[in-house]
């Protein structure tokens, strides 16, 4: 990776409850936790970030 990559940056938020997330971050709303688990691996690969689970509704993809 080049040195210009942003560090410690939230790349995307995946959630089942959009009411709890706002702001200038791409937010993806899913129907269920299982659906998030299905997709978050793809998000990791595409964005080169790591998936973290904040609680049962909110997942973050963060570049470290």
């Amino acid at each position: 990776m080049s040195n210009t990559t942003l560090e410690k940056y939230i790349l995307a938020v995946l959630t089942t409850n959009p009411n709890r997330v706002t702001g200038g971050v791409p937010i993806f709303v899913f129907q269920s936790k299982e659906e998030i688990q299905e997709k978050i691996g793809m998000f990791e690969s595409i964005l080169g970030g790591m998936g973290h689970q904040l609680d049962h509704e909110i997942y973050l993809v963060v570049r470290h």
């Binding site: 688990q37 978050i40 990791e44 998936g51 973290h52 689970q53 997942y59 973050l60």
Partner: peptide, 20 residues
């Protein structure tokens, strides 16, 4: 534990992806 990974009693990181 939940999404948190530990080695012994030391917290390593939060892993969001179940497959991981």
């Amino acid at each position: 534990e939940g999404a948190d990974l530990y080695v012994d009693d030391i917290h390593i990181m939060n892993v969001g992806l179940e497959i991981s």
